Simulated scan of single mutants.
Amino acid sequence: MSEKRWSVYLSGEIHSDWRERIESGIAEAGLPVDLSAPITVHEDSDDCGVAIFGAEPDKFWHDRKGAQLNAMRTQTLIREADLVVVRFGEKYKQWNAAFDAGFAAALGIPYITLHPEQHDHALKEVDGAANAVAREPEQVVQALAYIISGRMPAVMSGTQAAE
């Protein structure tokens, strides 16, 4: 019998290495996880619609064409996910990430938010619907290890975990 492969969608902020940290942690832990994500090249995400369907003189329609293509990708990958991780970074407001969290919640797909403490108040409703709130990508990896295989982290709050 083959081991279940988990599908995890990584939503949100695209300006830091959090996705790479989760990916390398998953590999190190040997977890059966397939990751998916939005297009993370900002210019490609913004300009895909006009590159494919033609230029738009009005910025609203320029953005709309790209947003519709990106929505098809995002909605499909979230629907296929077993779990979603939603990252809210420090520098930019990720309105799309909040939408992704709500979309996952509406579909009944569990999600983990990932953000610094400074965003707690602004994200209280998003966090309230989340299954977990993480501060660091490594906590997401530890949560996945526990969810998938029941593995406790080697160190818990400065003490050794029971072996």
Rank of each mutant, 00 (worst) to 15 (best):
E125Q: 08
L31T: 03
Q94H: 12
H121N: 06
V133N: 03
Y9R: 03
G102Q: 05
Q68Y: 06
H121C: 08
R79G: 06
L114C: 10
D44P: 05
A37C: 12
H15R: 15
H62A: 09
D17L: 09
Y92T: 12
H42G: 01
S36N: 08
L77V: 00
L35G: 00
H62L: 08
D46T: 04
A98V: 11
D100N: 11
E90S: 13
G108M: 01
P116H: 14
Y111L: 10
H115V: 13
D127Y: 00
A122D: 12
S7M: 15
T76H: 07
H115E: 10
E23I: 00
L77D: 12
A51P: 05
V50W: 00
L107Q: 12
L77E: 14
I52H: 04
A55Y: 05
L114I: 05
P32T: 06
S36P: 02
S36T: 12
I26W: 02
L123M: 11
Q118A: 15
T74W: 04
A51V: 09
L35M: 15
P32C: 12
L83M: 11
D34R: 15
F60M: 06
S36H: 05
T113N: 03
P110G: 04
V85D: 07
A27V: 15
I52G: 00
Q75Y: 03
V133F: 04
A129C: 09
K124R: 15
R87Q: 14
D127M: 15
D63N: 15
V50R: 02
L69S: 02
E20W: 13
V41M: 08
S16D: 13
R73F: 07
G54C: 12
V84P: 05
V85A: 09
H42E: 13
P116K: 08
T74E: 13
V133E: 00
V84F: 08
V84M: 10
V133D: 09
P110Q: 07
W95I: 12
I39C: 06
D17G: 11
G89H: 05
W95V: 11
K59P: 14
H115F: 13
P116F: 10
V33W: 04
I78N: 00
L10D: 01
I26A: 02
I14V: 09
D44G: 12
A37V: 01
E13L: 08
G102V: 07
A67F: 02
F53E: 10
T40N: 09
V50I: 11
K91H: 14
V41D: 11
Q68T: 10
E13V: 13
H115N: 05
Y92F: 14
V41W: 02
F88N: 01
L35R: 01
E20S: 11
S16Q: 13
R21A: 10
G30T: 03
C48F: 02
A51G: 04
F88E: 09
D47N: 02
K65W: 02
A71M: 05
Q118V: 00
I22Q: 00
N96F: 02
V133S: 00
Q68M: 04
V41L: 03
V85L: 15
Y9Q: 06
A106P: 03
